[in-house]
Amino acid sequence: MTDSLGVELRGRETAAAIKEEIAGLVRSSGTTPRLAVVVATGDEATLWYVRSIAKAAAGAGVACDIVDLGPAAQAEGIRATLERLSADPGVHGVMLQTPLPEGVSAQELAASIDPAKDVDGANPLSLGRLAAGLPAFAPATAAAVMALLDRHGVTLKGARAVVVGRSTVVGKPLAHLLLDRHATVTVCHSRTRDLAAVTSTAEVLVAAVGRAGLIGAEHVAPGAVVIDVGTNPTADGGLTGDVDFDAVIGRAGALTPVPGGVGPVTTALLLRHTVTAAGLT
């Protein structure tokens, strides 16, 4: 918790610091790390996001190849592409972007990514190693939550942390990351009884469900640090989080905005993971 109220934890400053660090490592090493992002969708919002990764990569000195297989791609073709990129010594990081064509399982295909290049922690082997406390890349969004907490000096040792959401992308890996930092962690989900009774005990509350406005003032303890991972589309083409920002900002000690909170840090950490996979850290 924090002594003050209503502090916005903006992610752009954290992301900029990470990218500056990356650029310095790349310059000093003389090596250009390469990230390959495999895409198989026609969704314009997703394609915009992938282009934003490539733009951020260019600014940090990381090469980024967008491998666009198109929305008609089949599972076998995607798998073959992931295997080829995993075997390519010139590629240091491999990421499979979702959504995928109907009937194609991202979890099954992610098993084709070499764990050493699995910069978004999607391979079940990466997730298992993370759970066991072994070296592995964590999913970038879960890692971004930790980076924001660290940058803003949030004490995790002994803290009561509640994660709302149990996906393999955020909720479950984040719970392990928090446990590794000695927080006392509770994971909530759609079947949790009296959600507010649980979340209102948290000193650190993370909302990662994908349900706009799920977390209101009654869910938040005064002074709690609230991290909003949700990115829900609005009718006007914008984004809103899982937290009712206006209701919570005056009660929380600190709160991430959407957009501009976790998102920029997630992108920066994909690049840092790629740099690590290239052996520069």
Rank of each mutant, 00 (worst) to 15 (best):
L205A: 14
N123P: 02
V198L: 11
G24V: 06
G260D: 08
A161D: 03
G216C: 02
G230K: 03
K117M: 06
V229R: 01
V198Q: 08
T266Y: 05
M1E: 10
A142H: 07
G70C: 06
G210Q: 08
P173I: 05
D244V: 03
G263T: 05
T14E: 13
D65W: 14
T14K: 06
G260V: 06
A15G: 12
A87V: 01
A36S: 15
V39F: 01
A56L: 07
A16V: 09
T141C: 09
L148I: 15
I53Q: 13
G213D: 10
V225H: 06
L130C: 04
T199R: 08
K117D: 01
R10K: 12
A224M: 13
A277Q: 02
L5P: 02
V258T: 08
G250D: 09
D180S: 12
T267A: 14
P233W: 10
V209M: 07
L127E: 02
L69A: 15
A75W: 05
A75R: 14
G30M: 04
P259Q: 14
P264Q: 04
G216S: 10
A202P: 01
G210Y: 09
H189I: 10
E108I: 08
P264A: 09
L134C: 04
V187Y: 07
S112N: 02
E83T: 15
V206H: 03
V154H: 05
S126H: 06
K55L: 12
G241F: 03
Q97S: 13
S112D: 05
G90K: 04
V7I: 11
A175Q: 06
V243P: 00
T266I: 07
A278V: 00
I66M: 13
G59K: 07
A122D: 00
